[in-house]
Amino acid sequence: MLDDLLRQHDGVITLAQALECGLSHSAISRRVQSGHWRRYAHGVYFVDDRPFSTAALIRAAVWSYGPRAAASGLAAAWWHGILGREPDVVEVTVPRNSNGRKHPRSTVRRRDLQPVDIVEHNGLRVTALALTVVEAAVRRGGGARVMDTGLQRHPELPVLWRAHLRNRGRYGSPRARMLLQGAGEGTRSAAERLFARLMKSAAITGWTANHPIGDYVVDFAFAGSKVAIEIDGLAFHTGPDEFQNDRVRQNRISLLGWTVLRFTWQDLIEDPERVIAEVRRAISA
């Protein structure tokens, strides 16, 4: 029973779980003293006969804050399989009235979540997928790509909106609203409006929208310097046929002597300074 539990829980075990498996306090102490078990936090141990994996880190961090804690943010995104890299720190959400100090490689958010926004996944309490997508998208290292991945694989946009509205006032809520608006119908036109605002705020002139080039119409063009700008929405709106057609279109425009720059909604939201710098460089070349 103990071996099965450790295998299912990535080598992490709590004091309560060990006692339920029939170990005594003294047996647990002997394992810690011998170095076979390593104490991560009070009442949370890692069996040091295997690598301390990302899953072990997240599980240990969440369990160290007690039974009402849940992984959230990028940690929850990793747990749900919509974030490919290990989060730098494990974000844990606990009820507002929780006590206790911060533990290693973790950050705590204190707020009361509704039951619909918490699930148990692989034996760990985590924020439900919809709330995870909305929150992780506004964390550093998350971004529109996390929302895009979540929408490609799992919940529909109205489900994300409901999770967002249930949790208004949280950290990153205004930016999440912008991403959700960009992910809705008309994503491309919303991105185009945002690009136009960036150009105006940077005092970059000489461009026209919906400019014809050969048999095509590009989103923006600097005719004097022959620079064409194409704006993409989130990837989940683009099927394989549209992706292929876009590449054929771009090649033909380039063969007509134009420089083509492509920017995504994610570029415009997360890195507008780079977008402006690349446009300036292209039109002054």
Rank of each mutant, 00 (worst) to 15 (best):
G169N: 02
H154D: 08
P158N: 01
V94E: 03
G150T: 12
D219L: 14
V159M: 09
W161Y: 03
H121M: 11
D117P: 13
L151S: 02
V146M: 08
E192L: 02
V90N: 05
T132C: 03
M178Y: 05
P158A: 00
G186E: 04
V126Q: 03
P212G: 02
K200G: 10
E156N: 04
E156R: 15
D215A: 10
V89S: 10
R105K: 00
A209K: 01
A163T: 11
T107F: 06
F195H: 12
N210W: 09
K200N: 10
A144H: 00
G142Y: 06
Q181S: 06
G182M: 08
T132I: 02
A136H: 12
V134S: 01
R109M: 05
G169F: 07
V108E: 00
R197E: 11
E120G: 03
R139P: 04
V134W: 00
R166Y: 13
L165H: 11
V108T: 13
G184S: 15
M199I: 14
I213T: 10
L160W: 07
R175H: 10
S173C: 08
G172V: 14
I213W: 02
T127R: 00
T205R: 14
A202Q: 10
R145C: 09
A190V: 14
Q152D: 01
N167A: 12
T205K: 13
Y171T: 15
R197H: 13
G214H: 03
L194E: 14
G100S: 05
R188F: 11
A190K: 14
R197A: 15
R188H: 09
R145W: 11
Q181L: 06
I118K: 06
R170S: 14
D215L: 07
T187G: 15
A137K: 01
G214K: 12
H154L: 01
R111H: 13
W161T: 05
P115V: 01
D148C: 07
T187E: 02
G143E: 00
A190W: 13
L160M: 01
N97P: 00
S173D: 13
L113A: 08
R105M: 09
L151P: 12
V218Q: 02
D219H: 07
W207I: 11
Y216S: 11
L180P: 05
V108A: 04
N99P: 10
E120R: 02
M147K: 03
E156W: 05
V218D: 04
G150V: 09
L160V: 01
A203F: 11
L179E: 07
E135S: 06
L165G: 12
R140L: 02
L151H: 08
G186F: 06
N210G: 06
I213M: 06
Q114A: 11
R110M: 13
G206E: 11
